[in-house]
């Protein structure tokens, strides 16, 4: 089974040289730490920055320089700052190659729910709805089952949706899965030490298993 770092490391392998990438809050943010040195990517932060760098050194924090999670960050050489309308313009126009975000639920047809729990959580969707509605390449980083022990990979989402038919790939502590265009979670890889049976048990939606499923290499 993977921990959060393991999920981030596995997702980092999906990032190709030359990509512009938007990383959501949580596990997706960790992905930045594991992008190989020979893979040249530019991180987009939807509050208006291309070329997001690591956290500043202590004492060098700048209140005017934050990421979309409102954390103090740095700007790398070659970075560019722009306003919020342009930021979502480049997202809508599919200039951002890959979006990685967390989810509460994903359905077998690629619907995603990650912004609201009625009666409990009313924080808002931020930029998530714009991102999932526009990006061609969306990877979800999440736990396979929730705290109550229920599968988060469902036939149909039960929570209010963030977007429909949009998730392409899911990486969890148990597995890597593709969401097929015609519907269904296709099992691609098992986490180290995890059996196919365990993944079947943890997946409520339609699971497609073809041939031997390799253990993932991180």
């Amino acid at each position: 089974m993977l921990d959060k770092t393991g999920i981030a490391k596995r997702i980092a392998k999906e990032i190709k040289d030359g990509y512009y990438v938007n990383l959501g809050i949580g596990i997706p943010t960790l992905v930045a730490n594991y992008i190989p040195d020979d893979v040249d990517v530019i991180l987009q932060s939807e509050n208006g920055l291309l070329g997001m760098g690591p956290f500043p050194f202590e004492g060098e924090e700048d209140a005017d320089t934050i990421n979309a999670g409102k954390q103090t960050i740095t700007k790398l050489p070659g970075s560019a700052v722009f306003d919020s309308a342009m930021s979502f313009g480049m997202i809508r126009a599919k200039k951002v190659n890959l979006t990685i975000l967390g989810a509460m639920e994903v359905s077998e047809n690629g619907d995603i729910a990650n912004w609201k729990i009625p009666g409990k959580m009313v924080k808002g969707m931020g930029g998530a709805m714009d991102l999932v509605a526009s990006a061609d390449n969306i990877i979800v980083a999440m736990q396979h089952i929730n705290k109550a022990g229920e599968s988060k990979l469902l036939p149909k989402c039960t929570l209010p949706l963030t977007g429909i038919n949009c998730v392409k790939k899911i990486v969890t502590e148990l597995a890597v899965l593709d969401v097929l265009p015609g519907g269904g979670f296709k099992l691609l890889e098992r986490a180290p030490g995890i059996s196919v049976e365990e993944i079947i048990k943890a997946t409520a939606g339609k699971l497609i298993i073809e041939g031997d499923i390799p253990e993932m290499v991180i």
């Binding site: 309308a85 930029g127 709805m129 714009d130 509605a133 526009s134 963030t162 038919n165």
Partner: peptide, 29 residues
Amino acid sequence: PQGTLATRCMAAGYGMPAIFTRAGIGTEV
């Protein structure tokens, strides 16, 4: 949605009455 918020501002500043966006399609928005 955040992009909708920004672009509805932009539309006002550009003198356009409305915008069209994919954000929120299929959701309660």
